[in-house]
Design a protein around this nucleic acid. Sequence first.
DNA 1: ATTTAGACCTGTCAGC
DNA 2: TGCTGACAGGTCTAAA
Length: 315
Amino acid sequence: MPELPEVEYTARQLRSSVVGTTIRDALVFWERTIGHPELATFLLKVADRRIEAIRRRGKYLVLDLEGDLFLSIHRRMTGNLFLLPAGWEIDTSLRETDPVAWSTRGPSFLATSAVDLVEGSSYSVDLAKTWYCRVCFNLADGRRLLYTDPRKFGRIELWPRDCEAVAFKGVGPEPLSTAFNAKQLTQALAGRKSAIKQVLLAQEAVAGLGNIYADEALYLASIHPLRRADSLSPTEIELLYQGIVSVLTLGIEHGGTSFSGYRDLWGEAGDNYDHMKVYQQDGKRCLRCGALIERIVLAQRGTHFCPGCQKLTVE
DNA sequence: ATTTAGACCTGTCAGC
DNA sequence: TGCTGACAGGTCTAAA
């Protein structure tokens, strides 16, 4: 679900709201969400740790904890993070009354009698939708950091700080870093025979692009998604580099792309879906040339492009 | 060595 | 109304 802009947006919100706070403990409602270390160790080690800093690495959200540890959170398709104010109780009664439903939905949330209901109702997290909570971090000040994930693909891991190479294996250069440029992209694409879109999705050449922003970046660069990665001209690579930086930067500025599931830390949807040029725009007219946007399947992923401005063959 | 299908999961929506 | 199939912001692994 979230690609680089959504992760970055959440990271910025977390940075201004939880740095300096202590994680009292964690509640895990779906064990497989914890990818490392095994659950008992994870619970033991994460408890009573101060959150020192928030970072992002590709699509990973990173919470640096005291004691040279870091939490990495990868939301995959449907993961979300919500910061719940103090004053809400976790209702786990479903665990006993309907174990099957509990397994898919997890706990629900109830306002305690002490909660100011006006404050509660103005909060953007739809508490009906915060079902599918998989992990809850109880903060020392009473707030809760909720990890929700209907499809259960996301993973949360806890690593020593010197294990970044393992934790982020295969994650390539950061596209919004000043160190990233067209020359670096050229080297990363050299010798890659696969379709350029597949290479972009693989994270190794450049980190953080997913299905939405890969399609959008290729459109901005006027490059057909099926072009062989090593066939791009220097001009095309320069355009692709600019396109990647552009779509990601705009995505962050618009608060991320929400077309169904993604919400920010406060439960708000982002606006970036209103700015899609090709992604899920098949059947509509290209804003540049007026051709009809097409959808194909590439590496089992829906792929959207303009056949008018993104040509497969040179004429 | 690469490509590709399958696995992991659940919800939603279109069509019959 | 139900049922079925396609599809969804991702990544890993086994088989071809």
